[in-house]
Design a protein around this nucleic acid. Sequence first.
DNA 1: TTGCTCCTCACGTCACGTGAGGTGGC
DNA 2: TTGCTCCTCACGTCACGTGAGGTGGC
Lengths: 264, 264
Amino acid sequence: VTVKALRHYEEEGLLRPVRVDPQTGYRYYAAEQLVCLTQILQLKDLGFSLNEVRACLDAPESLAALLDARRTALARALAEDVGRLRRLDALRHGLAAGAPLDVVVRMLEPTRALTAREHVDLASDRITSLFETLERDAARAKARAAASPFLLFHDNCLDGDHADVEVCVPVRPGVRLDGVREVEGATEAAAVTYLGPYQQTPSLFVKLAAWCDADQCTVCGPLRETYRRFGAGQRGYSLPEWMLAGPSSEYVTELAMPVRRVPA
Amino acid sequence: VTVKALRHYEEEGLLRPVRVDPQTGYRYYAAEQLVCLTQILQLKDLGFSLNEVRACLDAPESLAALLDARRTALARALAEDVGRLRRLDALRHGLAAGAPLDVVVRMLEPTRALTAREHVDLASDRITSLFETLERDAARAKARAAASPFLLFHDNCLDGDHADVEVCVPVRPGVRLDGVREVEGATEAAAVTYLGPYQQTPSLFVKLAAWCDADQCTVCGPLRETYRRFGAGQRGYSLPEWMLAGPSSEYVTELAMPVRRVPA
DNA sequence: TTGCTCCTCACGTCACGTGAGGTGGC
DNA sequence: TTGCTCCTCACGTCACGTGAGGTGGC
C-alpha cells in the first residue's frame, strides 16, 4: 500500500491513524490496524468499492448479503467477459482470413415485436405492405417502441425468388397484443451495415456466409435485416425522423447473422 | 448512444459530424457515419479505450496486433476474476460456517528467498538463530528485499515438539546465491493476522484448520507464518524500522494456509 | 403557446497517481 | 550536509452523466 492510499482511506473514514502529530502532521498507525487494513484490502480485491468496504466493516451483520450481491455482480461481469473474448476471437479469425473490417461481431438484443411470418415472393412488394400493415397496427395500439423495424429470413437462403420471412416491428416491453412475440437475440452475430438500396442484400449475404465459413462459425439463427434508415408510407402511423431517409441511396441497413464458434 | 457520447467522440476526434450549423451549433451526421459509429461501439465493447479505438481506426494494418494484445489482457482479467470469485465463495462459505471475519482469504505472492530447511525442536531457539544467520548472509550479499521474512511448516503439523520448517528471508528478484529459491505462492490462502507473542500460533493453526474443514477446503501447501513486525538481533545486518517491534506484545504475525476448494 | 431537443459551460464520478513546494529526522 | 520520507494543496485520469441556463423548430 502506498502512502497516498493510506491518506485516501483516512479521508474516506476507513482507517484513521491512532495518532497524528500536531507539529509535523505525520500519521502514526498502531500494529493492530494491520488487521483492519488487511480486511480493507481483501474486500477491495474482491471488487468492492471503498464505500461498500465501509458498509461491510460498519455492519458485519449484513456482510453475507453484501457478499452475495457481489458474487452475483462478479459472475455476470465474468460471463460478459467470456462473451467479449469469444467475439474478439471471432473478429480476429475473420481478420486473419482476410475479411474486411466492415464485418463486425456484435450482440443482438432480444426484442419484443409485432411480427408476421409468411412465405413471400421476393420480387413482389409483399414485404413492404406487411410492414405498412404492422406499423399501422402498432400505432393504433400505441405500442410502437422507438427501435428499428427488421426482417428475419427463417430459411437463411436468398438464392431463390421466394423466402420464408418474418416482418418485425418493435413494441414496448410488456405490451400484450395479438401477433406480438419475443424475438430471440444472439450473444454473437456477424454484422455488416451498408448504405443504399436493398439490392445489395444478396451479395452481402454471400459475403457474410463466406466470413462465417472462414471463421469456423456455424449459423445458429435466422439472418436479421435491420432497417436503420428507410422509406415509409406513414399512412396511419408516423415514425421518428431519424429512422427516415429520402432517396433509397440514403437507406442504411444492417445485415446480422447469429453465429456460434465451432469448438476447435 | 447518447448525445453526450457523440459529443465526447467528437472531442476525441473519433467521429466528426459532417456539418455543424454555425448559427445553432447543431451537429449533423451523415448516414455513412453509422458504419464508423458501429465500429467504434464494437471496439469499445471489446474493452478498448477510446484512445485505442482511435489507434485501431487510424492504423488498420496494426489492428491484428492490437486485437492480440487486447485478447491477452482480457484473458488475464478473466482469470483474475475467476480467482476473485473463488475467493469470494471461500469467504462466503466460511462465514456461513460461523467463522469469524478475521479469517481472510487472499493470494500469496511467489517470493524469491534465501532459505534453510531443517527439522527443528520447537522449544529451542533454533529458528531464531537460523533467521539471524540468513539475515546476515543476505545483508552481506546486499540481496535483501524489503519484504517480511517468513517460515514454512512443511509437515503442516504443530502438535508435536518438532517440525520440518523452512526459514525464509526474501531477496531481490534476479539474485543468484546459494540457498536462494523461488518459494511458490498460492492463488488462495486462508489467513489470520494476530498481535502478540508467538505462543498463539498453535491455537490459531487449529482455528484455521477448522475453518478449512467447514469450508470444504483442502490444504494444498505448507503453512506460512509471516513476521510483519518482530524483534531482531540486527547484528551484522539491519532492517527497516517498519518491520521492527519492541516488546513481543507488539509483534504482528500472519498465518496463511494455502487451500483449494474441493469441487462440490 | 407548450413541449421537446439541441446547445455550451462546468462540475461530478472513483481510487488513487503525480508533481510542486516545503519540512523534519538521520 | 546529503538523501530520504513525510506533509499539504491541487490537478490529472477515463468516459461520459448530470444539472444550470439558454435557444431554435414544431
